[in-house]
């Protein structure tokens, strides 16, 4: 049976009529022409279809479109602002974090969701102290990104790309905090040096 539902995708609102069997992935790709999320396994095993649903990373291949009526979906495309690549996209380019690129939109969405989780202090299976603030070591990034497979084996560079963004964002926040603490006399050069160091 067909049902009419709303979906926000990368900032655009859509009303669409779908058969109950339609997954979110198929709705995005086949119905709305949003080709950024990819179909790898179609069974939750590879992460190529990862999107952010209301800000949380999920596998769109195991989500029924109807179940997410009214949700805001962000794909890798939507992470770019005004056609400007996001820091994550840029970092994947800088670090050669892909070969064929098929897994990349899923990797990027997963990384975006993962960084937000770490920011909220969510632990992972390799976190020693469950209650301590998260330090995104490479072991942590590998574990947290393990839901995304890459047949080209770009893993090492994916980990560096994600870690660099994590460090940049932390550096920026630390910079903003110290700027707020001392907004009278601040040397812009020091701030930049700090950012460089975290690379």
């Amino acid at each position: 049976m067909d049902y009419s539902r709303h979906l926000g995708v990368d900032g655009t609102e859509h009303t669409l009529t779908v058969d109950a069997r339609t997954t979110l992935l198929d709705a995005l790709r086949d119905r709305l022409g949003v080709m950024s999320p990819k179909k790898g396994c179609d069974h939750g095993q590879c992460g190529a279809c990862t999107v952010l649903i209301d800000g949380r990373r999920q596998n769109s291949c195991l989500a029924l479109a109807l179940s997410h009526d009214g949700a805001q979906v962000t794909t890798s495309n939507g992470l770019a602002e005004n056609d400007e690549l996001s820091d994550l996209h840029r970092s994947f380019l800088d670090h050669d974090a892909f070969q064929c690129g098929y897994c990349t939109p899923g990797q990027v969405c997963s990384a975006a969701g993962m960084l937000a989780e770490a920011d909220r202090g969510a632990p992972s299976a390799v976190t020693e102290d469950l209650e301590a603030p998260v330090d995104l070591s490479s072991a942590e990034v590998r574990e947290r990104m393990s839901g995304n497979l890459c047949r080209c084996g770009a893993y090492v560079n994916i980990v560096s790309a994600v870690r660099e963004v994590a460090a940049q964002r932390t550096g920026k926040r630390a910079g903003q905090r110290s700027a707020a603490r001392d907004d009278s006399a601040r040397d812009p050069m020091t701030a930049r040096a700090g950012d460089e160091e975290s690379r």
Binding site: Q58, N59, G113, P123, S124, S146, G147
Partner: peptide, 16 residues
């Protein structure tokens, strides 16, 4: 319980 949950599936699956 935290450890058991975190050892299961993947970050994106656990979110669903």
């Amino acid at each position: 319980l935290s450890r058991a949950l975190l050892s299961g599936a993947s970050g994106q699956l656990r979110n669903a």
